[in-house]
């Protein structure tokens, strides 16, 4: 009890933060159960229009197809990005050298330019290869990001060198050390990286909408964009779609957050 009391300022701070964070989400959930007119009137209590909104949404838009396309793009991007970027981040830090530092500096430049400026040449590149409308074209520009590489590089600073040396003495190859020791040790970093990458890929809008020229490959963000494009927007239906589109990221976070909480004690020692 006294301990809880001593933490009171902490709890108060967290409560304020949580309430502020959750309120817009609450509005989204409640709005999905309300009529368009009620949403516009900022009604804050649950309504009875959820079933009607579900029926209307599924009648006007192919939610299943959009969810599927979004999921394929996001999962593929996340898996490939984790492999490519973690091995690079590991390489940068564990085999640290001046030259690699310089390369990192150069690679960092790649994230400093707004995508709108590089989009046209990139589109041309994929169009020349006949790869428009392909999953490959959606994910390739997103799998190797300086940000993820840097994240793994920075995290690797805390990777204990004694373990590394011990493994080398045991005759493990460098790749095996990475796969068998580094990956399990850095689970929380992987969890953070996976959450962030999945979220970015799932919400990515500009590039998929351009490279997936043919509208039948539409993803959830495009579906939502379509819902607001008509003369009449049904805000209840829109909020339901937005809610559905937010769920996968929330689920991923809930699943992976256990890894954030895991202490180093169990993993290494």
């Amino acid at each position: 009890m006294t301990r809880t009391l001593r933490n009171l300022p902490g709890y108060a701070f967290l409560t304020v933060a949580a309430v502020l964070s959750l309120f817009p989400l609450y509005f989204m959930v409640v709005s999905a159960t309300n009529t368009s007119q009620d949403v516009l009137g900022s009604r804050l209590t649950p309504g009875t229009n959820l079933l009607q909104n579900v029926r209307d949404l599924f009648a006007t838009a192919d939610v299943r197809s959009a969810m599927w396309h979004s999921a394929v793009n996001a999962v593929a991007t996340t898996l490939v990005a984790l492999v490519v970027c973690s091995i690079a981040g590991y390489g940068f830090e564990i085999f640290h050298s001046k030259g690699k530092d310089r390369l990192m500096g150069v690679l960092l430049l790649a994230m400093m330019i707004p995508f709108a400026a590089t989009m046209i040449p990139l589109f041309q590149l994929f169009a020349d290869m006949g790869l428009t409308n392909s999953t490959l074209a959606v994910i390739l520009p997103a799998v190797s990001t300086p940000f993820l590489i840097l994240l793994f590089r920075q995290s690797s600073r805390n990777f204990p060198h004694e373990i590394l040396e011990a493994a080398r003495l045991d005759g493990l190859s460098e790749l095996m050390i990475f796969a068998r020791i580094y990956i399990p040790t850095m689970r929380s970093t992987y969890a953070a990286a996976a959450t962030i990458t999945f979220m970015a890929a799932w919400n990515n809008f500009l590039w998929p909408k351009v490279i997936l020229v043919s509208p039948q490959y539409q993803t959830m963000p495009m579906l939502i964009s379509n819902l607001t494009s008509g003369y009449v927007t049904n805000y209840g239906v829109l909020m339901l779609a937005v809610l559905l589109a937010s769920l996968p990221t929330v689920v991923i976070f809930l699943v992976l957050q256990r890894s954030f909480a895991e202490g180093i004690t169990g993993a290494i020692k």
């Binding site: 299943r64 793009n73 593929a76 392909s134 490959y217």
Partner: peptide, 16 residues
């Protein structure tokens, strides 16, 4: 990569 690319193409017209 190529497998995911293919499978999405298939399921794009299949499951949906």
């Amino acid at each position: 990569l190529s497998m995911t690319a293919c499978s999405s193409g298939d399921s794009g017209s299949g499951t949906s």
